[in-house]
Design a protein around this nucleic acid. Sequence first.
DNA 1: ATTAAAAGGTGAAATAATGCAGTTTTTATT
DNA 2: AATAAAAACTGCATTATTTCACCTTTTAAT
Lengths: 233, 233
Amino acid sequence: MSTLDHQRYYNCDDCLFKTISCQYIQKDEFEKLRAKSVQLRYKKGEVILKQGAKSTHFLFLRKGIIKFNYEDENGKNLILSINKAPALIGGANLVNAEFNLFSICAIEDCEGCTIDVSMLTRIALGNTLYLFKMLQFITDVFRSSIFNFISLAHKQVNGRIADILIFLSQNIYANNAFVLSLSRQEFAEFAGCSKENVIHTLRKFHNEGVITVEGKKITLNDPERLQKISKHG
Amino acid sequence: MSTLDHQRYYNCDDCLFKTISCQYIQKDEFEKLRAKSVQLRYKKGEVILKQGAKSTHFLFLRKGIIKFNYEDENGKNLILSINKAPALIGGANLVNAEFNLFSICAIEDCEGCTIDVSMLTRIALGNTLYLFKMLQFITDVFRSSIFNFISLAHKQVNGRIADILIFLSQNIYANNAFVLSLSRQEFAEFAGCSKENVIHTLRKFHNEGVITVEGKKITLNDPERLQKISKHG
DNA sequence: ATTAAAAGGTGAAATAATGCAGTTTTTATT
DNA sequence: AATAAAAACTGCATTATTTCACCTTTTAAT
């Protein structure tokens, strides 16, 4: 590697994307992908992919937590999904959308590398098992959000907030106690209700002993009861 | 063709699925698909694919209107999306779900044919352009539902019902006046609110002259005003 | 044609959720 | 360390939504 190479924060040999890719494609083909790839770091709050922009690359998210953010015609934000590394991001557009349908923003410091869509497509078209694997990666992200939608669509706020707490605990932080990466406003944009309603509801759950809220630190004391609230509400 | 062939309601040569397929694959390959395919008719109300069942085939919907129905843990129904022919149905499971995540039911009389997933996959794996085309078909169905979700997630009932009326008028019936294929209960399951709320809101729009409701017949008199309600509410 | 069952509809009380106006706490900046 | 700005929080009035009890109309079954 010449010293003119882009800045490198980590060694590609440690990267899951390389590991997975090389189960399907040859090293020299992966090298073609890598040559076009740039390692990037994003601070909490930064926009990784912008809604409406042309989608020229994916991001393999190696580290961090991101949100899918949709901004509507009135400028109101909605969080469609939250995902943690590792994930292949930006692929909702692979098959049939030229422009990003929503933004992807870091809600914790992130690290990853860009992946050139046309190069990946070219390689994947020549290797359908690899194509399938990439599609799986991409649709995983999408599929995980469908249950959020179902919750949103026919539960009341108690149930929706219980669902989000369970989701964050299980899928994102993998722990009953966690430091929330979202502001109360963002939590509301995820739950589809007002920020005040989030605050009131978290306080209520806290007072009932189901959870403990200390600022951004949340502990699920009684996940079973949360499940019941989710089911009932 | 022998007389032992399955009943045929229509000639495959007229079918869009054949037309599209044969742009990508050879006639003899299509013949392999066709040999495994069965033409089927469904009456309004019939279940085409059942939530939880193993997904062994797609359905190419040639005629009719269907709903995606999700039944939750309490037996409550939610309509995720509504689609009209032509559409390749059941593919949400192609990449990474062994069992149907939701049911697909006819809400008007339907006609179509089954398509064997493993055969289609085998052929598509040997022809990536065809694979891409099929994926486009499949994800179209999915993608169209995302805006319903966005509407559900952060609009109030006025806006959601306005959105559904616009969606049905533009995407399903392609007409400002239509005979609704849904009961009021189903409309509520699509809008994510109570049946009474649907009735009240339709009545209100009717009284304001925005729409005309005569039982199942609905006419959008003032689509621009509906757009405003959608945007505001 | 009669009856039962399902769907459509109504108004009002009870509950849920929002939006406001303000205070307190936290975070970032100089 | 002081200040400003942003986020968190509170209680309450207003608005939205559900639920209920009940009635009417339509549809399906005998």
